[in-house]
């Protein structure tokens, strides 16, 4: 069932899933990464894995358009061992799998919780989609939306649920801005108008440590979530 209605706000679950597993242990923190095709979602996931894997126990769920392509990229790049990477098929509707019917993704993340001990963090990467795709709060604890400057500096102005509601907006490929005539200041101003206080990171993932700010944001949220769950 195709449920992508660009004119309406995405349906959200009214609750977040419990942070405790059935055995009362803490489950892994779940981070969703969405955004249009080619904006750098898979590159972000790869960079986050390389940056965080020594300190945290990680796993990745990909939602490929054409099954396993992104999962296979991550395997090839050897960012994590194979048992920590899995792919979910989405039946040509990647946004449905992360938003309207999250059951296959929940299966995948819960399976990681069961099989990988201890597990700190699961990254759920959506299939490349349009600007309306967001993650259900029933699936992830926080979500990151990745766009890039080369797709047009008017994207933040156009908005859409991903731009306006994601917990973190990443504007990637800032190094390309002069070449594609993108105005970063305008993008920043538009993003602020759309998002209010929600954070925006401008970065180039190909630069040294271009992932650092995003990684720090993730680990900060992980720490706060744990503190809250323990309270």
């Amino acid at each position: 069932m195709h449920l992508d209605h660009p004119v309406t706000m995405p349906h959200r679950h009214a609750y977040s899933p419990e942070p405790l597993r059935a055995d009362r242990g803490l489950r892994a923190f779940r981070v969703g990464l969405g955004g249009p095709v080619g904006s750098g979602k898979t590159a972000s996931v790869a960079a986050l894995c390389r940056t965080l894997r020594d300190e945290f126990s990680l796993a990745v769920v990909t939602n490929d358009i054409y099954t396993r392509e992104d999962a296979e990229f991550l395997l090839r790049e050897a960012v994590l061992s194979p048992e920590r990477i899995t792919a979910v098929e989405t039946g040509a509707c990647p946004h449905t799998a992360i938003r309207d019917d999250i059951s296959a993704n929940l299966e995948a993340v819960e399976r990681f919780d069961e099989t990988l001990h201890p597990l700190d963090l699961v990254l759920v990467e959506s299939g490349g989609d349009n600007l309306t795709a967001t993650f259900s709060k029933g699936l992830v604890d926080v979500q990151i939306f990745v766009i890039d400057v080369s797709s047009g500096d008017d994207i933040p102005r156009k908005g859409g649920p991903g731009i306006t509601t994601a917990d973190l907006l990443v504007v990637n490929k800032t190094d390309l801005a002069p070449h594609v005539g993108a105005d970063l200041a305008t993008m920043a101003a538009d993003a602020e108008r759309q998002r209010g206080d929600l954070p925006v990171v401008f970065t180039s993932l190909t630069s040294d440590d271009g992932i650092r700010e995003i990684a720090d944001w993730v680990t900060g949220h992980l720490a706060r979530w744990r503190a809250k769950a323990a309270a």
Partner: peptide
């Protein structure tokens, strides 16, 4: 019976 019932059917042909 709704195809939108969130039980995974959308990913199967």
């Amino acid at each position: 019976a709704d195809g939108r019932f969130p039980a995974g059917g959308h990913a199967h042909s």
